[in-house]
Design a binder for these strands. Structure first.
Lengths: 349, 349
DNA sequence: GTTAGCACTCGTCACATCAGAGTGCTAATC
DNA sequence: GATTAGCACTCTGATGTGACGAGTGCTAAC
């Protein structure tokens, strides 16, 4: 059932050609362009066999062959070779990421931009999922008589805040006490842990005013924690796909765009994917069955995991795209490793 | 040069018909559907005159007439009558906005959703521009040895924060002093005012540690203020336009989608538009010359101004869309009037 | 001023035709 | 037995043609 060396060569040639030109490739053009030392007729015979094995398909009798999902899968798993990025691309990535390195979200957005610019595909990047982040402290700050700010700070410096309208007056003393008690109670626990525990722990009622305040604050506390879990999703180059013949029909293009309209759904899907470079081709996806989706993960301080990805037709340059993504995620992880180790670097000396 | 009563009637009929069916309308169908008491031939003569005056165009000899931008402008300015929203739509708007009223950004997003759902066009909503917002206080909070949080709070409870990496150690005392001095210095000033003043005021150097800290914090302070100015833009129903015959060509659809890819540019454009319901039709726009853009503004506490809008082909139901937008912005302004007066309401009693 | 009548224009649709690309098979060749 | 040349066959896409219908614009009659 294994493919012969020649079959592999022919398959690779067909994939290369089809990825390049987006048109079914015939036996004659393979024979001419790729020096396989055999005639078109022989190639035709092999093609016929490859089709029988499910690696090729046939739009109609008198058209050339088109690689199937199975062929791309074989290509990605065994045929494909890592590509070296051009010096220009490397420089572009390095420069652009370095330029915004102290502003986390902007760096992530730049990563998405770079990815779509270099690959000419639709891309996205998202900030890390923070389920595992530990709470560092909780602070309540007064704004005016009826309004306070609830602020939750994570260990990595991740901050979320909500403005709360209270229906009872508060005292500064109660505010401080409640902040302190909440911090004592939750410090060091992960967001996931707190959100999963069914009971909202009592944080004490040292004084009367605090007890009232607590009633106001605690429900919002949970909602704010949930907010903190939300990842930011940056999408770029959506309109790139209009240039591809695969999406030249308005219906195809619409389906594609609609995928991204549902950001929440999309985010969930992407979070659920494994770490490292993950390629899912055509039918391997449960939605977008005629797309290929490639994701890769970067790390923040070795712990939190963020994702970047591209979406395009199954016909794409797998070798280039995966190489770029690998380079990009390595760069991101490196950038954010430094960020979070600031207090251990020579800067402090 | 004024149009006769009959010409206006015919023009209105043509607009109504064309908006409904998206097909050039002929003299016969006008005569049949709208009881004007004249024959098709007469209508043809009037149409010819209207075309000469620039209110109608002619795709080709044997096609019916199509309203020009000028015709729509006339319609919007003088012919159009306010539409009453259906009870269903009103209820939908009220319910959906009420459901999220204490979470500002979510309410805004819901407004955009409602707008696209009811009009079947692409819509957006943005949070208020906060140039005029006054700074309430500034706070510096420690995270770990080399990291602090800079937090700026506006009068309306609007909060922005940045996580800063320092290259010198800090003391709690310096942090507190700097917070306090910065607050004293900037409290009550508007963001616009602070950002426009060329000199960064000296906030004093009461102790040595503070002077060093200051050098680290002040540059980020400006950048954080700028962040605070950023409005959030929510877009909905982009894919609605694929259903319209105007965008059935892939190129048109692409142009349309590309407009929205540049969020920053788009935001600036929208901020620059006047308050109230503003309609710009076709050529009146400097980009998207074949679209109509309708924006409307809502108020937060009578001061800050946010915008909602729809974008579609010039062929749209101007009367319905403007009425919906008016209703929606009134509702939003009402909602946010209450929000920001909390501390004056009976809740406090 | 209005209208009926009619010639004319233009776009669309269905249909036929033709060239080109590519296959699949058979028989000849290595 | 594998490879190849040759050829009939298939299908697409481009091009052309004619009929049809919608709608105008003009003229002459009302």
């Amino acid at each position: 059932m294994d493919l012969s060396e020649r079959q592999l060569q022919i398959l690779q040639a067909i994939i290369t050609d089809y990825v390049e030109n987006a048109e079914p490739v015939g036996s004659r053009s393979i024979a001419k362009k790729y020096d396989l030392g055999v005639s078109p007729a022989t190639i035709r015979n092999e093609m016929s066999d490859l089709e029988e094995m499910g690696y090729l398909t046939h739009p109609h009798t008198s058209a050339g062959r088109v690689p199937s999902d199975k062929a791309y899968r074989l290509y990605v798993n065994t045929l494909m070779q890592k590509k070296n990025l051009s010096a220009k691309d490397k420089r572009m990535i390095n420069d652009r990421l370095a330029a915004s390195r102290d502003e986390f979200d902007r760096t992530i957005r730049h990563a998405a931009e770079l990815l779509s610019e270099i690959t000419n595909l639709a891309s996205f990047a998202m900030t890390p999922a923070t389920n595992e982040e530990q709470i560092s402290f909780i602070r309540l700050l007064p704004v005016d008589r009826g309004t306070i700010i609830l602020m939750i700070v994570g260990e990595s410096g991740n901050v979320t805040n909500t403005t709360l309208r209270l229906n009872v007056p508060y005292t500064q003393e109660a505010l401080d006490l409640l902040s302190k008690n909440m911090t004592v109670n939750y410090k060091g626990r992960t967001l996931d842990d707190v959100l999963k525990s069914e009971i909202i722990e009592d944080v004490g009622s040292d004084i009367e005013a605090m007890s009232q305040l607590k009633g106001n604050v605690m429900p919002s506390f949970i909602r704010t924690l949930e907010d903190m879990l939300n990842v930011n999703l940056y999408m770029e180059g959506m309109t790139n796909i209009f240039d591809l013949p695969e999406y030249s029909s308005i219906d195809r293009a619409r389906d594609f765009m609609e995928l991204f309209a549902q950001k929440d759904w999309f985010t969930q899907k992407m979070l659920a994917r494994g770490e490292g470079v993950v390629v899912t081709i055509g039918d391997e996806n449960d939605t977008m069955k005629d797309c290929t989706l490639i994701t890769a993960s970067y790390h923040v301080d070795g712990k939190l995991v963020g994702k970047i990805g591209v979406i395009g037709p199954t016909r794409m340059k797998y070798d280039e795209v995966t190489s770029i993504m690998e380079y990009l995620t390595n760069n991101l992880s490196e950038t954010f490793r430094l960020v979070d180790n600031t207090n251990n670097t020579e800067d402090e000396g």
